[in-house]
Design a protein around this nucleic acid. Sequence first.
DNA 1: TAGAAATATATCTATATGGACATATATCTG
DNA 2: CAGATATATGTCCATATAGATATATTTCTA
Lengths: 107, 107
Amino acid sequence: MSTFNTLAEPNRRKLLDALVDGPQSVSALVGAIGMSQPVVSKHLKILRDAGLVHVTPDGQRRLYSVNPEPLSELDDWLAKYRELWAGRLDALEAHLHNAEDHQGDRP
Amino acid sequence: MSTFNTLAEPNRRKLLDALVDGPQSVSALVGAIGMSQPVVSKHLKILRDAGLVHVTPDGQRRLYSVNPEPLSELDDWLAKYRELWAGRLDALEAHLHNAEDHQGDRP
DNA sequence: TAGAAATATATCTATATGGACATATATCTG
DNA sequence: CAGATATATGTCCATATAGATATATTTCTA
């Protein structure tokens, strides 16, 4: 799973985080992240190749958005280990319910 | 989160996978993974430093086991993105229920 | 059509890291 | 205590990659 490799870079995770609330142009991302435009474009290419983002041309801009598919696969990978910290599937669901009011609680 | 960095290496994920069903000695892991002992020990050290495994001395052996705490944090990180592919929290719970009979179904 | 604006790409360098190999350390057994 | 066994560590090399810088490409606008 190259998803891990791609997400290993902190700035790429920042880029994803900046996209979680909706599509953004490259220059918006440059402003949000505080890196040079070429570096941002380079990271965006890597995110693209990993299928983690999706591009929509909009005139001379490119609107990037999160493509959640690889993240879903990451979630599936995690499934193997969930019972190790949640004990039971039920406990996980309880945890998810608590996540509705976003508190940093650990069972 | 250095967890991503640590898990970016495929052989380290193999090591974790080999530990999911219970503790294993280094030599058992060497046999399971098919890498040289020094390389396995090196990867185990990285997994240890990332807090992903735990060691219990057992005579001249070391028994390694998964420490799920960082994986739980990874799960929390994923939470931000879940609704992007699950749409609703309820949909996620349904997915988890389906995971009880381990099928590779995607909604 | 000639810039200007937005984005992508190419090149270079420094650094991080995986694996091979040699060796050190610790523990067990005769 | 002397080997044998299990594991860890150190060194070296090849490779991957992040960022800086320069430049190319595309699209908009006067």
